[in-house]
Design a protein around this nucleic acid. Sequence first.
DNA 1: ATCGTTTCGTGACATTGTTACGATACCTTG
DNA 2: CAAGGTATCGTAACAATGTCACGAAACGAT
Lengths: 179, 179
Amino acid sequence: MATLASDGIEGFTTRRVAQEAGTSTPAVYELFGDKAGLVREIFFEGFRQLRSQLDQLAPEPDPYRDLEQTVAAFRRFVRENRVLSDLMFGRAFADFGPGPDELKAGASTRKFLIDKIRRCVEAGLIEGDPRDIAHVLLAAAQGLSAQESAGWLGTSQASRDRRWTLAFRALMAGLASGR
Amino acid sequence: MATLASDGIEGFTTRRVAQEAGTSTPAVYELFGDKAGLVREIFFEGFRQLRSQLDQLAPEPDPYRDLEQTVAAFRRFVRENRVLSDLMFGRAFADFGPGPDELKAGASTRKFLIDKIRRCVEAGLIEGDPRDIAHVLLAAAQGLSAQESAGWLGTSQASRDRRWTLAFRALMAGLASGR
DNA sequence: ATCGTTTCGTGACATTGTTACGATACCTTG
DNA sequence: CAAGGTATCGTAACAATGTCACGAAACGAT
């Protein structure tokens, strides 16, 4: 079966989706109304998968390591679902821009982060508004992931790892002492 | 004239480009070979513009403020050239993925950052390999910009500003004390 | 001045998003 | 159980787009 992952975005056409679903093209339009609607569904499915993957993380007693592990899981998700992530966080499909409902999906993921961050704040590891911190942390992870996907973060695995951990440690250390 | 900024990505077609250039479609193919080639040219032009905008920054004696100002200029560029930035840093066009030459263009921008970061390191403000720091700083800025463009960073200007400065300050503070 | 090369315009082809138009299956209601 | 309405689906078509073949024209070199 040809999927997003195997054929990339350019192979993603309504006809092909219909064919591989064993039905005809208008059926897709009957169900999703639009190609954008179809893409939107995949978008939501992506966030469900990410959420499910985060939920399956083994609980970690240390709040710091717990947060670190969550970021690592995010990174893994993006690496293993490159095209899907481009759709979720980038602008892979031209005619699909995130609307209010899509923002909610993103907010759900962020909420997951916020809880873990709150634990770190309550443990005295860092200071600040968990929501702001979640935004910053997620933005950094998203930027690093985008660069890693595009090959901009370095050619060797070692340098990419080094930069990821540097970013996380620096952010956490900087958040330790308020302002 | 219809441009990328006014009509977005969906209006960007080889026929239209040819028409507004006062020529015919195959002329475009003669010049750029491909639509990807045409897009690539815009990609490079984008990095030239970004570089030119960074070069026009008034020199700042304080290395910290200098770096901060550079990041602010990056943010401004992305905000004022939303579609172009999507093309440069995201994956706005499906059939165009960054190759070796494109990576060089990105490296040029990063080099600009590295010099300013080196100044901060030499001034004792932060510690670490300037190249690693540049990667991390650029990734964070790119992630924040992407979220801001998509509307994920918050609805109020104040919260967006707060998160930008939080990210920068936290990163710099965290880089101050090595490891 | 002539020839070869480069550039360019007309027209065509394959693909894609999208929809009109019937046909079919299914579900409700008497 | 049968009839009618509705939702769904397949065939075919249309418009737009990327791309290219095929000459025509322009332009420089000899």
